[in-house]
Amino acid sequence: MKRLQFALAVFSLAVSVSASAQNFPNKLIKIVVPFGAGGVADLTVRMVAQEMAQSMKQPIIIENRPGAGGIVAANSVASATPDGYTLLLMSNGTAVSANLFKLKLPYDTLADFVPISTLGYFDLAILVNKNLPVKTVAELIGYAKANPGKLSIGTINRGSTQNLAAELFTSMAGIDALIVPYKGSPEVLTATTTGEVNASVEILSPALPQIKAGGFNAIAVTSAKRFVGLPNVPTVAESGLPNYQATSWNALAAPAGTPRPVIDRINKEVKAALAKPEIKARLLALGIVAQGGTPESTKQLLAADIAKWGDVITKAKILQQ
Rank of each mutant, 00 (worst) to 15 (best):
I62V: 13
I71A: 08
A53D: 00
E51L: 06
M52A: 03
K57L: 10
P59Q: 08
E51P: 02
P66F: 10
A73C: 05
N64F: 02
Q58F: 04
A53S: 15
A74P: 09
K57C: 05
A74I: 02
Q58P: 05
N75I: 00
A73G: 00
I60A: 05
I62L: 15
S76I: 03
E51V: 04
R65V: 15
R65E: 09
M56V: 06
N64S: 11
M52C: 09
I71Q: 07
V72Y: 08
M56P: 11
K57I: 03
E51C: 06
V72W: 02
R65K: 13
V72I: 15
Q54M: 13
M47Y: 14
S55F: 07
E63Y: 09
V77D: 10
R65S: 11
I61P: 01
Q54H: 11
Q50T: 14
K57R: 14
I60W: 05
E63D: 15
E63A: 14
V72N: 05
M47E: 13
Q58R: 12
M56N: 06
E63V: 14
V72S: 12
K57E: 15
G67D: 02
A53E: 02
A53G: 06
V72P: 00
I60H: 06
V77C: 05
G67Y: 07
M47G: 08
M52D: 03
A68C: 04
A74N: 01
G69R: 03
S55P: 02
M52N: 05
S76D: 14
E51G: 04
E63R: 11
S55G: 05
S76C: 02
M52Y: 09
V48L: 09
A74Y: 01
G67S: 08
Q58T: 15
P66N: 07
A68S: 10
N75F: 01
V72R: 07
I71M: 03
A53R: 00
I71S: 03
M47C: 07
G70S: 08
S55M: 12
N64A: 06
A53P: 00
I60K: 08
G70I: 09
V72C: 00
M47W: 04
E63F: 08
N64M: 09
G67N: 04
M47A: 12
G67H: 07
P59G: 10
G70V: 09
V77Q: 09
K57H: 14
V72D: 11
V48C: 06
K57G: 06
A74Q: 04
Q54C: 03
I61Q: 13
Q58S: 11
G69E: 04
A73M: 01
A49P: 00
S55R: 15
A53V: 03
A68Q: 12
A49N: 02
M56Q: 12
S76L: 13
G69W: 01
A68K: 11
V72L: 14
A53Q: 09
G69C: 09
Q50N: 15
Q50R: 13
Q54K: 15
S55W: 08
V48S: 10
S55D: 14
V72H: 00
A73Y: 00
A68P: 02
N75H: 12
A53Y: 00
P66A: 10
P59L: 09
I61A: 12
A74S: 14
E63S: 14
N64T: 09
G70L: 07
Q50W: 10
G67K: 04
V72F: 04
